[in-house]
Design a protein around this nucleic acid. Structure first.
Ligand code: MN
Ligand code: MN
Ligand code: ZN
Ligand code: ZN
Lengths: 140, 140
DNA sequence: AACGCCAAATAGAACGATTCTAATCTTATC
DNA sequence: GATAAGATTAGAATCGTTCTATTTGGCGTT
């Protein structure tokens, strides 16, 4: 008796965005959006998908993540070393980056006030504000 | 009559850090520290050095930038797309990133208060705080 | 000034994350 | 079920950066 894989919630999200509900997109949407907020890398999500039995290529994971971003379902978090994380938390917020573990966590309370930023130079507009607090394990 | 290339200021900096005053390090230190605060990439600095007549390899530019960082003469700024910038401004400060021009600028006044950050999780310590405000040219 | 030791510089290969390309497969429609 | 448009794929290409093995050069000693 096989598991129910209708993925109703994922179905609904894809319908909303106008993206075709392919097997890959359904599976990835399920992994991303059916278990609370997440911070994933493309490679992390890819191996997770493979482990869960979903056959999908890394290229498709990248394509899908970018499409979900475009659709406003994900935000990107850029940090050092060319690693890009994708964040299902759409609220404006900062991040702790646990450098030793290479993991991201939302900053529980905003220690910064985006509205307190000085007005940007003429002819430009703010398109994003990233606040990244890097943490290392304390030696001892 | 050739230009005076004693680079007194650069000499002094290298002496302070204990790094040998090689031709390459002197030339790079001169470019970095003898004309006010700067934000440079390795490749940018490399081509600048080449144009100025200094013979230096890209590998050495990377080595030198890292050594200057280690010595506390430079800070790193990480942003999207694997591009790393090196900053001669050692004060804590945020950055505007002009995405269309790929240029960095210090945020004139701090719109955030580092001390207002919630205490980091047990067993960890803050090693850096990055605030990057990305700007795009306003269309019209 | 020549000698030798070791640090530093170098060219080029390797790397890791991401993007691209061109071929194959799916989905949606008729 | 045929068709056309869209999606997936493997593998090559790209980009910034790091590594490796070799050569060069700074500097204290003769
Ligand atoms: Mn990744
Ligand atoms: Mn660079
Ligand atoms: Zn987050
Ligand atoms: Zn700066």
């Amino acid at each position: 008796m096989e598991r129910d894989e209708t993925y109703e919630h994922a179905q609904k999200l894809l319908k909303m965005t106008g993206l075709r509900p392919t097997r890959q997109r359904l599976g990835l949407a399920h992994l991303l959006f059916d278990q609370g907020n997440r911070h994933v890398t493309a490679e992390g999500l890819h191996s997770e998908a493979c482990k869960s039995g979903l056959s999908v290529s890394l290229a498709t994971v990248y394509n899908t993540l970018h499409q979900f971003m475009e659709a406003g379902l994900l935000n990107q978090v850029n940090l050092e070393g060319a690693r890009t994380y994708f964040d299902t938390n759409l609220e404006p917020h900062g991040h702790y980056y646990f450098a030793d573990r290479r993991e991201l966590m939302d900053v529980p309370a905003p220690g910064f006030d985006k509205t307190a930023l000085p007005a940007p130079p003429e002819g430009t507009q703010i398109t994003r504000v990233d606040v990244i607090v890097t943490l290392h394990d304390v030696p001892k």
